[in-house]
Computed example of a mutant assay.
Amino acid sequence: MTTPASFAANNAPLPLLDTEVLRTFVTIAESGSFTRAARQVFRTPSALSMQIKRLEDTLGQTLFVRESRQVRLTPEGEVLLGYGRRLLKLNEEAVTQFLAPSLEGRVGFGTSDDVGTRILPNVLAQFARTHPAVQVDVVVGSSVNMLSRLDDGELDLVLVTAGNVGQPARGERVHSEPLVWVGRDGGLAAQRSPLPVALAHHGCAWRGMALDALDRAGIDYRIAYTCEHCAGQEAAMLADLAVAPFPQSLIKAPLRKLDRDTLPPLGDYQLELVKRGGGSQASEALLGYVFEAFRDMYG
């Protein structure tokens, strides 16, 4: 293991810390998990693990204590976290100082409350670093409302669920994944009759897919919970009040995917990115970041 003394003895310069590796280290430290950090930086947990191993070898110190469900910093890691944050901030200030922003203006971005909101923080953070002079205003709401505001000129880009009742295809498909039945692990809602279900508002594609599947299968059900956002469905499932149709990628403990033998398959659902005609260069640039985020995260 290398030490400062060994560099001094060999009259060798001290190594430089890579800013990307430092960014990975800070992200892991702040999220408490290699898996969560990997989602945030759009890389695999194994790739992050290799980066941290090289960083530990460079510094000659162990930076993380790895536990079953999380990681925590060692005392040396806590010291490096302070330095890492300052170095990343200084690097950002230097780049901003010498690279004049090529884009300016405002972009109105609308998204529905599902997978889109999970990628949005990192998309906006990366976009702000590259285009600091562009102001991005974000609105979260139903797909129908987002499209209406786009048509009224209030928004420039919207990320919406495809297939809503009365909503023709208007944009470019950016994501598709299975919609599955979900409930609380160990809960009783899935065993009740009639089956209690938590659904979104009328006209939502998820609602239509779920009700059609239940009707075709001849399953007796009751709508026990209705809400505008998927966070409301999640709350109903966590309370074991109902089961719900939910994107597979959003399932996290204590929720689980329910047995397909007892509930009918739902099929896939899609997200579309729709842009307003005559959009600015800034909105076109943000559109590219959204496409790249979905490609990196979901392949």
Rank of each mutant, 00 (worst) to 15 (best):
D212H: 13
C227W: 07
G110R: 01
V140A: 02
P264H: 07
L255A: 05
V138N: 05
V134R: 01
L266I: 04
L87A: 15
S249L: 11
L238C: 06
Q281M: 11
T130N: 10
L87H: 11
L273Q: 08
F34T: 04
R36H: 12
F246I: 02
Q51C: 04
F246C: 04
P196D: 03
G60A: 01
F294W: 12
L286M: 02
G108I: 03
R207M: 09
Q97A: 15
Q167D: 12
M297T: 12
S142Q: 10
F7C: 05
A189D: 03
P178G: 08
F64H: 01
L124I: 04
G232L: 07
R118T: 12
V274E: 03
A253E: 13
C230F: 15
L87E: 14
P194R: 08
M297F: 10
P194S: 06
E20C: 06
T24P: 00
V134N: 00
H175E: 09
F34K: 02
H131E: 08
L241R: 14
A239T: 04
L80F: 06
P45H: 06
V71P: 02
Q70S: 15
G116F: 03
M50F: 11
L157E: 09
D268L: 10
V41M: 05
V182K: 06
T24G: 08
E56H: 02
Y298I: 04
R216V: 08
E272P: 01
E78L: 10
F246V: 03
E177M: 10
N164I: 07
R260Y: 08
Q233I: 12
L63T: 05
